[in-house]
Every structure is written in C-alpha cells, then in structure tokens.
Amino acid sequence: MTFTAQVKVMPHKELLDPQGKAVLGGLGNLGLNDIKDVRIGKNITLQIEADNADNAKQIAEEATKKLLANGVMEMFEVTIS
C-alpha cells in the first residue's frame, strides 16, 4: 500500500529562529503589529510503500531523523494518511 506521510519540522522553542524574527520585523514594517511571534519551519510530504500505517510511520520517522531534521535544533511530528 502507498501511504502519505506529512512531516512537520520546527525549531525547538528554546532556540532563536532568525527567519521568524526577520518575518516578524517585516510584518511590523507593514503595520501588522498584532502579530507577536513568528516561527518558520518545514512541511515535507513523503509517499511511502509499506504493509501498514505503523510501518509507514516508522520509515518516515527514520528518514526524518537521518536526513530531514536536525535533532539538536529541530523537533518533528509525523502524520500518516
């Protein structure tokens, strides 16, 4: 079966997010001062061939740990459909 894995990768909350800060500054320059924080991450979609959803999730998590996310600086969440 083919499963779709959605991988959401975000910087750890404790770490500075320079892209988010730059976007926040830009929004302020546009007069959008009600926005108080911006965090920039990645959304990755994987098509996975697996026997079942649990195996597909395991494959997606392995790929994310090995290549798609930096465990020191980022956290991730995998959703299978």
Rank of each mutant, 00 (worst) to 15 (best):
M1N: 00
T2Y: 04
F3G: 00
T4P: 03
A5D: 02
Q6Y: 02
Q6N: 01
V7A: 01
V7M: 00
V7Q: 02
K8I: 02
V9H: 04
M10P: 01
M10H: 03
P11A: 03
P11G: 02
H12N: 04
K13P: 06
K13F: 01
D17Q: 00
D17E: 00
D17M: 03
P18Y: 05
P18K: 01
P18H: 09
Q19W: 04
Q19N: 06
K21L: 09
A22E: 08
A22K: 02
A22I: 01
V23L: 04
V23Q: 00
V23N: 03
L24T: 01
G25Q: 09
G26Y: 02
L27C: 06
G28D: 15
G28L: 02
N29W: 04
N29D: 15
L30P: 10
L30N: 10
L32Y: 14
N33Q: 11
D34N: 08
D34E: 14
K36F: 15
D37G: 13
D37V: 10
D37K: 00
V38Q: 14
V38S: 07
G41S: 14
K42W: 15
N43K: 15
I44V: 13
L46Y: 10
I48K: 08
I48S: 07
I48F: 14
I48D: 05
E49C: 12
A50E: 06
A50W: 05
A50M: 10
A50S: 13
A50H: 09
N52P: 14
N52Y: 15
A53I: 08
A53E: 11
N55I: 07
A56C: 07
Q58I: 10
A60L: 06
A60M: 09
E62L: 13
L67A: 04
L67I: 11
A69Q: 06
G71P: 13
G71E: 14
V72Y: 08
M73W: 06
M73R: 07
M75Y: 08
F76E: 02
F76C: 05
E77L: 10
E77I: 11
V78L: 07
T79M: 09
I80Q: 08
I80F: 00
I80A: 13
S81V: 12
